[in-house]
């Protein structure tokens, strides 16, 4: 897969990547080195990532952009330890996780990573409170601590009064707040968001982005977000653009 593959001829693109754009002095938490991801569909193979090197420093807010099918979600899933690279290395907090077992990856997701999805992915017929509590059940956190953290997380996302409701009784924006609360309760170092505003109208999108930005700035949570809307990407400090499974270019947003 590596090396002399003719489809990987974009050296000038990779050279333009500016890792130094990250906050000076912060350690690198996400370190993907020459990562390839191939999906095997019973005979035909899809090369979703063709050798990507990508680093994120602690406390950064990075947006990933690109056309549909360019490999953004694949990338985010690898970062989130939901999947393992076909080849290449992935160091998370300086630990190589690219060959870890499914169980070990689950523990890493549980303790270090919070996920936010486009379609919220809340458990249906399960109350808001229970949804937010869920990651802590797998972390074996005791009851009183769980209750305190759920209460706090719901206050942070400003929906403490919806605790008893079920997801289908909430608006899209409220559901995404619940998802954010759920991603926060295990105090993750990294939050990964795949098109978090994709199902929301523009004003609700703005509110959700304000939240995420505040989390990043005040709690120094590293944030990697996939989006294909430029104005959403504008909330990030750095933007990485994908094309056909490779990084096309990277740039910093001056305003942030």
């Amino acid at each position: 897969m590596n090396g002399n593959d003719s489809s990987r001829q974009a050296p000038e693109v990779e050279a333009s990547v500016d890792y130094a754009a990250a906050p000076a002095g912060s350690p690198i938490v996400i370190d993907l080195q020459d990562v390839v991801k191939v999906y095997d569909l019973g005979g035909s193979q899809v090369q979703a990532l063709k050798g990507v090197t990508f680093k994120v420093r602690a406390g950064e807010f990075v947006a990933i952009m690109g056309h549909s099918g360019s490999g953004k979600s694949t990338m985010l899933n690898l970062i989130g330890c939901l999947d393992r690279p076909t080849s290449g290395r992935y160091l998370l907090d300086n630990i190589d996780v690219s060959r870890m077992s499914r169980g070990a990856l689950a523990d890493i997701r549980n303790r270090k990573i919070g996920f936010i999805f486009q379609n919220f992915n809340l458990l249906q017929r399960t109350s808001v409170w229970e949804n937010v509590e869920l990651p802590m059940l797998y972390a074996e956190i005791d009851k009183h601590e769980r209750a305190a953290r759920v209460r706090h997380a719901l206050e942070v996302v400003k929906i403490p009064h919806k605790a008893k409701m079920h997801p289908n009784q909430l608006s899209g924006g409220e559901q995404q707040r619940v998802a954010i609360a759920r991603s926060l309760v295990n105090k993750p170092a990294i939050i990964l968001a795949d098109e978090p505003t994709g199902n929301l109208d523009s004003s609700t999108s703005g509110e959700i982005m304000e939240f995420l930005q505040t989390l990043n700035r005040e709690q120094r949570i590293t944030l990697v977000m996939v989006t294909h809307e430029t104005d959403i990407a504008a909330y990030a400090e750095r933007v990485t653009v994908f094309k056909d499974g490779l990084i096309l270019r990277e740039y910093r947003n001056e305003s942030s």
């Binding site: 523990d107 997701r109 303790r111 249906q124 869920l134 295990n186």
Partner: peptide
């Protein structure tokens, strides 16, 4: 299936 996926994403091990 989707519920299982969500549980796994937030940290449920296969054993769980």
């Amino acid at each position: 299936t989707r519920e299982i996926g969500v549980r796994m994403a937030i940290g449920a091990r296969p054993g769980h």
